[in-house]
């Protein structure tokens, strides 16, 4: 009996020792869509869940779009969550490993860019865009800038010369500002991501009938998780598998609450796309003379 008691006590100590072993620390850089606060609130539960699943202390690093590539090169984070153009850039320049692509909206793990105008503006075709005031999304936004830029080039419109002028909004919620910019008549035409239009209609912020779509790009991959080339393939694979197992019902205890991981991050799920799925985006970047294929 004494021996049994001793064995149990030893086992308890051993378990305690095991729990006390410090977990390794790693960082995930999340591209800010609107603000650091929003990024932290959205992805905090997902980061905590990943820490739990992979037994690694992941730190959430909110990163501005323009600084993303630079801070990644500086080794500020090992895992990335960014738009698909940043993935293409980092893949080419830093050999970023593709993990999984985020699903959101009707196109799933893909999205598209549209050019819209007010229905009562009289603008119907690409030819009507000449001499008009246009508002784009941020320059590194594939569905808010790159796609539309290409659509116009394909239609024989040079955005740099044929428009009266074009602008890019400041601050947060740029995609919504773009849509409202056209709706309230500040601009004649806007480069709006198909996903944002879809969500704004679903939420009742705008009516589909108020806008006309001049053009829509082919679909291409949406926001993407990646891992630095230095991340061990086994860990990268476990990270990917963890993402793919997420369902809308998956929860995590975070900040004293039980939270739905995907719901809180505004994500429907993840798909294991392959690198060649991003070729369509590479072609767009080449045609628009955009990074990582920019030539001066």
């Amino acid at each position: 009996m004494k021996a049994l008691l001793l064995a149990i006590i030893c086992a308890l100590f051993l378990t305690a020792c095991d729990q006390a072993t410090p977990r390794s620390k790693m960082r995930i850089g999340y591209m800010n869509c609107n603000s650091e606060q929003e990024t932290t609130a959205r992805f905090g539960p997902l980061t905590a869940w990943l820490s739990q699943q992979l037994n690694i202390d992941f730190e959430l690093v909110p990163v501005d779009t323009q600084e993303f590539a630079e801070r990644f090169s500086a080794g500020e984070f090992e895992f990335t969550h960014s738009n698909s153009l940043l993935y293409v850039i980092l893949k080419k320049e830093q050999q970023l490993q593709l993990l999984a692509t985020e699903k959101r909206g009707r196109y799933g793990a893909r999205t598209a860019g549209t050019i819209i105008a007010r229905k009562d503006s009289g603008i119907r075709t690409f030819a009507d865009l000449r001499g008009k005031r246009m508002i784009f999304g941020p320059q590194l936004a594939p569905s808010g800038y790159l796609a539309q830029y290409n659509l116009m080039l394909d239609a024989g419109i040079d955005p740099e010369r044929d428009l009266a002028y074009y602008a890019i909004p400041h601050g947060s919620f740029k995609h919504e500002k773009v849509v409202y910019g056209v709706y309230f008549g500040e601009y004649d035409v806007a480069a709006a991501p198909a996903l944002d239009l879809e969500l704004m209609i679903r939420d009742g912020k705008i009516f589909a009938d108020d806008f006309t779509v001049i053009g829509e790009s082919p679909i291409f991959p949406y926001c993407t998780f990646g891992a630095a080339a230095s991340v061990a393939p086994d860990l990268a694979s476990r990270f990917k598998q963890a993402l793919l197992t997420l369902t809308p019902e998956t929860t995590v205890d975070f900040g004293g609450e039980t939270i739905k991981v995907l719901g809180s991050a505004w994500i429907d799920g993840f798909d294991p796309l392959i690198d060649s799925d991003y070729d369509v985006l590479r072609e767009l970047a080449k045609k628009a003379n955009m990074p990582p294929y920019q030539e001066f």
Binding site: A194, E198, I201, G204, F207, A208, D209, V213, E216
Partner: peptide
């Protein structure tokens, strides 16, 4: 009808948005 009309003039993206509106 508006959705079918948009599809007839090859505007699938706008048709999709119109469906979103109908879904509300």
């Amino acid at each position: 009808a508006p959705v079918e009309e948009l599809l007839a003039v090859n505007k699938p993206g706008e048709a999709l948005l119109r469906l979103e509106q109908i879904e509300r």
